[in-house]
Structures are given as structure tokens and as C-alpha cells.
């Protein structure tokens, strides 16, 4: 075989892996022009792992960036990823105190009011205190097909849905989002900072979506908030250490029922 007939194959790829100067020189020149034989070798599905290390990554990076299309926000997908990561989001609660604090917080949260059908319940309840923080929540459900539907209290929603909350707060507040379901410990889903007015509940720059994947039956989302102020840091520390929410905390609840087969809330 003459030198000019040489194409990429298992042997030459090993020579290149060993950085043999003659092979490097030859293929640097040979591959600078289209070659169907070499391209077929590069496209084959049974390539050995580690062949031409990094080349696939360099290629895919370039290919996916070629369109230059802006990326839309994907709250549904992110909520599913976060859920599939497993642990409830308690990054702000450290060490072994986390679980204890979450349990105690929820002992305070689970208050009368989750009544039966027909009970009328205000969307915002103050636990106690004299300086009320007005707090309300509404929600929409986003489905994998991209449709968005409003979610009413006691709505039936499919497990594929991701619930996005919108709140109204009368003043700046620190807040916890908690999930309650029968037979399982309450779960702190995240900590949020509320700003006065009506806003989407966000987690940093992202919408704070709650995935219902693997859920069945009743689920209640509870937003618990207390005013920010000079005691803000102390209040958070008290929650972290002892699970005690401030006495002027308010809560807003949204009861849902998760059932498969419902295409829309």
C-alpha cells in the first residue's frame, strides 16, 4: 500500500494515540481534505472507548452551537431534574440539624385548616402576632407539551405536571416552601425571599417549579413566610437551629390531588 493510500483504521488510530510523528504529520495533511474512507471510520459505532480523546466533545460543542438559537427557559425540565436528584432541597439547612429542623418546622406548619371538602379556607393564615403579613398564592401547572393551565384549590393534576407558584406578599419576607402529603414526613422544598407585590416564586433566576412526578393522591404545597427585618438573620438562624418559625409567620396553602390520566388540571 502506498503512503497516499493510507486511511484511518484501528492501527493508525493507535499510532496517532502514541503521537508517532510520521503518522501525525501524514494524517494532519491527509485529513485536511474530504476522505470518505476516513470519515466512515470516524462515524462507525463500534469505535473503541477513548479513541481520539476529546474529539467527540469538541465536535458536539461546535455542532450544537452552530445555530446560535437562544435557549428558552425550561422550568418543567429543571423541576424534573431536581426531583430526580432525590433529596429535598434543604441546602440552607446544614448537617444533621437539617432533618430535625425540617420536622419541627412542619410541626408548626401542620395546623387545623386542611379541612374536608366544602370547608372555606382563606389563602393566607397568620399563625399569630399583631403585624400581619398578607400572603396569598396562586398556581399554574405546566405540562410536558408546553401547555399552561391555572390550578384551582383541590384541582386534580397529572403527575407529569410541574406546578409554578405565584405569590402576593404585602412586604419583603423570608419564606419556606413545604410539601405535605398523607403518610410521609413533610418536606421542605426550598427557601425563598419574597418581595412586596405579586410575583412568580423564583429560585435565584429560575422559576421555582414543583414536580409532581411519582406523586399520587393529595398533596399540599404550603408557603410559610415571615417579614424580613432587623431580626431577619436571627430568624433564619432560629429556624436552622431549632425549627422555630417567627411568631408573625403567615402561611398560604394550595391543596392538589395528583392522579394519572388527567391530561390537564
Amino acid at each position: 500500500m502506498s503512503t497516499s493510500d493510507r486511511h484511518l483504521d484501528v492501527e493508525s488510530s493507535k499510532q496517532l494515540e502514541r503521537r508517532e510523528p510520521e503518522a501525525v504529520r501524514y494524517f494532519a495533511e491527509h485529513l485536511s481534505r474530504p476522505c470518505e474512507v476516513c470519515e466512515a471510520f470516524l462515524a462507525r459505532e463500534d469505535a473503541s472507548p477513548g479513541e481520539f480523546p476529546g474529539l467527540d466533545a469538541l465536535t458536539d460543542e461546535a455542532l450544537v452551537e452552530a445555530s446560535g438559537r437562544p435557549v428558552r427557559e425550561d422550568a418543567v425540565g429543571w423541576a424534573r431534574v431536581r426531583r430526580n436528584q432525590g433529596a429535598p432541597r434543604r441546602a440552607w439547612l446544614t448537617g444533621g440539624l437539617g432533618a430535625m429542623a425540617a420536622a419541627v418546622v412542619l410541626a408548626l406548619l401542620v395546623r387545623p385548616g386542611a379541612g374536608g371538602p366544602g370547608d372555606v379556607e382563606p389563602s393566607s393564615q397568620r399563625i399569630k402576632g399583631t403585624a400581619p403579613l398578607a400572603l396569598e398564592v396562586t398556581a399554574v401547572a405546566r405540562l410536558p407539551d408546553g401547555t399552561v393551565r391555572a390550578v384551582a384549590e383541590d384541582a386534580v393534576v397529572p403527575p407529569e405536571a410541574v406546578v409554578l407558584l405565584r405569590y402576593h406578599a404585602s412586604e419583603s419576607a423570608d419564606a419556606l416552601l413545604v410539601r405535605e402529603a398523607p403518610g410521609v414526613p413533610p418536606q421542605v422544598l426550598g427557601r425563598h425571599v419574597l418581595t412586596p407585590g405579586t410575583h412568580d416564586l423564583r429560585d435565584g433566576e429560575d422559576l421555582a417549579g414543583v414536580s409532581l412526578e411519582d406523586e399520587r393522591g393529595p398533596v399540599t404545597l404550603v408557603l410559610v413566610a415571615w417579614p424580613q427585618g432587623v431580626q431577619g438573620d436571627a430568624a433564619l438562624e432560629a429556624v436552622r437551629v431549632s425549627g422555630q418559625v417567627p411568631p408573625d409567620a403567615a402561611q398560604a396553602r394550595l391543596r392538589l390531588k395528583v392522579a394519572p390520566g388527567h391530561a390537564a388540571p
Partner: peptide, 11 residues
């Protein structure tokens, strides 16, 4: 694309 990028790496 891989062929072209590999050529550049080797060059």
C-alpha cells in the same frame, strides 16, 4: 466535522 477538527488538532 470530526475529520476536519482532527486534522486541525494534528496540524
Amino acid at each position: 466535522v470530526k475529520r476536519e477538527l482532527l486534522a486541525r488538532l494534528l496540524a
